[in-house]
Design a protein around this nucleic acid. Structure first.
Lengths: 234, 234
DNA sequence: CGGCGCATGATTGTCGACAATCAGCCATTG
DNA sequence: CAATGGCTGATTGTCGACAATCATGCGCCG
């Protein structure tokens, strides 16, 4: 059983705000929603827990992580540290062919438009991860991936409703400066970009609600294998 | 059942070179060694796998991770990035009482002597993690913990036999500069410390016990069937 | 004699059942 | 009437058994 599908499904649901921070992730609900059994769900939850995307409480269960405002700021602060270093290292070993993927990603983002919010966030994360990859430092890549995921969780928690973000030209601007080997300019543009992302958030508070887990995932096109599904309503 | 005991046991065994990188970690062996059953062992291995301390290969099992020389260098490089930032941030918000734990840890290290290698490495890691904690950035703390563990694995793999010493006065020196709020000096001392640690290892690429065959052929442009291929983390 | 394919043993992956634990509710009591 | 205690339903934690998969060694064939 491919547990990546479950992971992606949960992350997607979080990004789309179908799963709000603090919501309970019941093992049985998830198992029937994804048409699998608790064993795999437990592995997935453990995995997400090790990345602080869900919070595991012994004998209580798993909950979508709620970042405090301080943690949210720490995530952005750490991203600034790592992205600064990534750009710097990438430009120290830059070759023209290395930038091709970067250009490709920027083009993809531009072509994508504002169709699908999940794909958009995914592409946006890919851009940052690709810069880390250009640094040639695999540890940096892994950390960046983790921070990108946690950032999307923070956005889901603190984004003001209606103001669904897109900094229009930040990525092309950064990419352009990288391709021009303008290290100081690229670093500055990246810091502006991150600061702006952070500024769009409402780092003061939020509220929670409850919803039907199985329905959420069914709406995302995930169909259980008809193994005695959840009994809803009755 | 306390799985932390199993985790600590495995990490200790790695540090003491009883478990060498590349060695198989059979579930049944571990289960009987720790007097538990495979369920808990699998959780522990999954956890260690998500931190890249063990490598999980589907249908093959778990192995103590083998860092390539490049990865080892990346780990040190990333540590430099993060520790630099940690010291800088810590000194921006420094209050005298904050340094007390640091002094305590240095004193503990000095008192400890060279009795137990595992405890020594543990204390050494605590020093670095404490600095990250002083920065007030919990993400930095988590990353530092992870890197400290991976560093001990790298040391176990690349330390020349017999030369099991550590830099005598590096930590007291760094602590002193931090307590004196000498930011530039502390950062410089930390970088020297890390560079020296790295220099004590044999990272020249001399002998890779078992070179990764797949990687070799991938470099030649030959791609395996990717039947789940290099799946890391869990 | 060397290489290929298959049986076999051992290990990992999967699953359902049972036990332990916790939150919520109701009766009891001061 | 409020607070406490135990009961109950539901959820998580644990475990052993079975199925799937892989490495090994043997026999067979070229």
């Amino acid at each position: 059983m491919d547990q990546d599908l479950v992971v992606q499904g949960i992350l997607k649901a979080i990004s789309l705000k179908r799963l709000r921070p603090g919501m309970k992730l019941g093992e049985i609900e998830l198992a029937s929603a994804f048409g699998t059994n608790r064993t795999h769900i437990r592995q997935v939850l453990s995995h997400l827990g090790s990345r602080d995307l869900v919070t595991l409480i012994p004998n209580r269960g798993a909950f979508v992580s709620q970042c405090s405002v301080d943690e949210a700021r720490a995530i952005f602060e750490t991203r600034k540290i790592l992205e600064r270093a990534a750009i710097s290292a990438a430009l120290d070993r830059f070759t023209p062919e290395m930038g091709r993927n970067l250009s490709r990603l920027v083009a993809l983002e531009k072509a994508h438009g504002h169709n699908d919010r999940w794909d958009g966030l995914d592409l946006s994360a890919s851009f940052h991860v690709e810069i880390a990859r250009l640094s040639g430092n695999p540890v940096l890549v892994k950390f960046m991936e983790e921070l990108a995921l946690r950032t999307s969780l923070v956005i889901a928690q603190y984004e003001p409703p209606g103001a669904e973000d897109h900094c229009p030209d930040a990525h092309p601007d950064i990419a352009e400066r990288i391709l021009a080997r303008d290290k100081a300019g690229a670093v500055a543009a990246m810091e502006r970009h991150l600061t702006e992302m952070q500024a769009r958030l409402r780092l003061d508070g939020g509220e929670e609600s409850e919803a039907d887990i199985a329905a959420i995932f069914q709406d995302l096109g995930i169909v259980p294998k008809a193994k005695g599904g959840t009994r809803r309503g009755a």
